[in-house]
Design a protein around this nucleic acid. Structure first.
Ligand SMILES: NC(=O)c1ccc[n+]([C@@H]2O[C@H](COP(=O)([O-])OP(=O)(O)OC[C@H]3O[C@@H](n4cnc5c(N)ncnc54)[C@H](O)[C@@H]3O)[C@@H](O)[C@H]2O)c1
Ligand SMILES: NC(=O)c1ccc[n+]([C@@H]2O[C@H](COP(=O)([O-])OP(=O)(O)OC[C@H]3O[C@@H](n4cnc5c(N)ncnc54)[C@H](O)[C@@H]3O)[C@@H](O)[C@H]2O)c1
Lengths: 278, 278
DNA sequence: GCGCTTTTGTGCGCGTGTTCACAAACCCGT
DNA sequence: ACGGGTTTGTGAACACGCGCACAAAAGCGC
């Protein structure tokens, strides 16, 4: 692959020479001819590495091996090395990686050497928590505006920023050059808000509402779904209980309803509710 | 595989007749701890289907095809069918799926026919939002206790529930039979809280703190990482900009429109900040 | 009963991601 | 200069999940 690469910027002289990745052959009939190449799965882990590296830098650590960094990030070291190799050949064999240098390279790859303006739409429980959260600002994101549809919310100050009305959405997006829209409205309003954001030029959306949104191609949509996370945990919890119950039932004569056996275990608070809610 | 299966419960007479699935009873001698192997990826989508199905049921829809349900869930219909096939053969060829019946089956599989007690640890911005959120209770989860280390927080009522002190964690877990622990403390405290939860018997943990946690095998750990989500979006945003810039550079002859496009497009607020933060 | 239509359930090829394991590269002491 | 010790970068095998495409079932009209 890159074995034939001429040579990498020798780090001795300090300033790194950003190298553009070549559009890996593969005549895939994919969308945009972007300088493709770095796997989505790897990208999703870069923030993890970055966080661990920054923590190390704070502790005064200047050099780190893939094994150490992998441990701190909770991943396999081979995976870590392969992930980093997608950015370039930034390590030193027999030594490891220089922390500062790697922090810079990952930051650059993730686009964190710039500030991105973020708009939060829906300033309720969750939107307010997000607005008050200091962790974003320190990581390259600037909460540029807060938007809500409720006239009672409009004008209130949250974390030093005034809540603006939904009517001004388009103007605010343009004014602040908002790049990322965060949707924290009720599910029913989410699609409409997304549509307006996209129409206003936003091409990155993070959705917290429990709704399936559709956006045109070219717009990046990610979602955070808390209910789903809990439900996945519930599945494993139940499976664990059933496994025990199953074993127990193997001895007894199973009548018709296995369910009764299950809730004998320490699991749920309420005895197997008859009516299903959800 | 099971094509030659002798016969499955024929629900020919139209009526749902909720039928319990075979407890892996058939002659097969596969007896491991886990009764069955339903792929993790499928499980993660079940809540999505469930949500769509419930919405349909509310609208009075009683029957749905895989194509329709897949559309409403934003997934490929073949994938949907394969996912559902892991639960059993609950559809009717040529017709589709009965909404109520499917809601029941998925709920059962996810363990949502029971209530699970949830503890939230760290009642700050985020923990408070979670505690105030009504969406959990309606989906089989009951916020059983709120725990914080700050004496000033202790005793306050949030959403009708008094905040308790961290010292009582073990007692509260036992008392309420907490099955799921939600960590919303600062990152520095997360591992310690997780350790105490696990020691107290909790085997499902949802972590919001930006920290890599380790839990013993057998404990299910999931995380929600908002900063990471934003950083992934930032990556795509940046890639998009570079792609345009790249193209512009290639066609250096016509810089006119392209250059404007870049500027006009929502770029970073600050022109490539010199200092990297993160 | 029979053929026609519809839709499920799934076999199969494919691409993506993960992990192992090892040669190449580098540092350092002698 | 050189050899020994260490760690990277990556080829290759493996595992997994996705989606196409199709035969098998079910319903329906006649
Ligand atoms: N609070 C949580 O912990 C939590 C957890 C999981 C999911 N969610 C989801 O996040 C979203 C927000 O939750 P929340 O608890 O903050 O709800 P909330 O009701 O407290 O806040 C919603 C806010 O959105 C505003 N709003 C309504 N329609 C709007 C529109 N069209 N445009 C702009 N603003 C609008 C409302 O005025 C309100 O201020 C919901 O979809 C919820 O399901 C929240
Ligand atoms: N607020 C957000 O929108 C947001 C977004 C992303 C991530 N997070 C993460 O979620 C976590 C909570 O965020 P927040 O904004 O609510 O912070 P916060 O500072 O408002 O709240 C933290 C709470 O945890 C309590 N606490 C501290 N140590 C504790 C301990 N050992 N045991 C129990 N409670 C303890 C504090 O008293 C405080 O009430 C943080 O790790 C943060 O990084 C928050």
């Amino acid at each position: 692959m890159r074995a034939s690469s001429p040579e990498r910027p020798s780090r001795g002289s300090g300033v790194p020479t950003p190298r553009r990745r070549r559009a890996s052959g593969r005549g895939s009939a994919e969308h945009d001819g972007a300088p493709r190449g770095i796997p989505e799965a790897s990208i999703a882990r870069l923030p993890l590495y970055l966080r661990a590296l920054v923590a190390m830098a704070d502790r005064g650590i200047t050099s780190v091996s893939s094994e150490e960094l992998a441990g701190a990030s909770g991943v396999n070291s081979a995976k870590l090395r392969k992930d980093l190799s997608h950015l370039g050949s930034y390590g030193t064999r027999g030594v490891g990686y220089e922390v500062d240098y790697l922090v810079y390279q990952i930051s650059r790859e993730l686009g964190l050497t710039q500030d991105w303006a973020v708009a939060i739409i829906g300033i309720g429980n969750l939107g307010r928590a997000l607005a008050n959260y200091g962790g974003f600002a320190t990581r390259g994101f600037r909460t540029a505006c807060l938007i809500d549809a409720d006239p009672n919310q409009v004008g209130q100050r949250v974390s030093g920023l005034a809540v603006r009305h939904l009517d001004d959405l388009e103007a605010l997006i343009a004014e602040h050059r908002v790049a990322i829209g965060v949707i924290a409205t009720p599910a029913g309003a989410a699609q409409e808000v997304a549509d307006r954001l996209v129409a206003a030029g936003v091409r990155s959306v993070l959705n917290f509402a429990p709704a399936v949104l559709t956006v045109p191609p070219g717009v990046e949509l990610r979602k955070v779904d808390l209910s789903t996370e809990l439900q996945i945990l519930a599945f494993h919890e139940q499976r664990r209980v059933s496994a025990v119950a199953f074993e127990a039932a193997a001895n007894a004569v199973v009548p018709d309803d296995v369910g009764d056996v299950i809730d004998a275990e320490l699991g749920p608070v309420a005895p197997a509710a008859s009516g299903l809610r959800v």
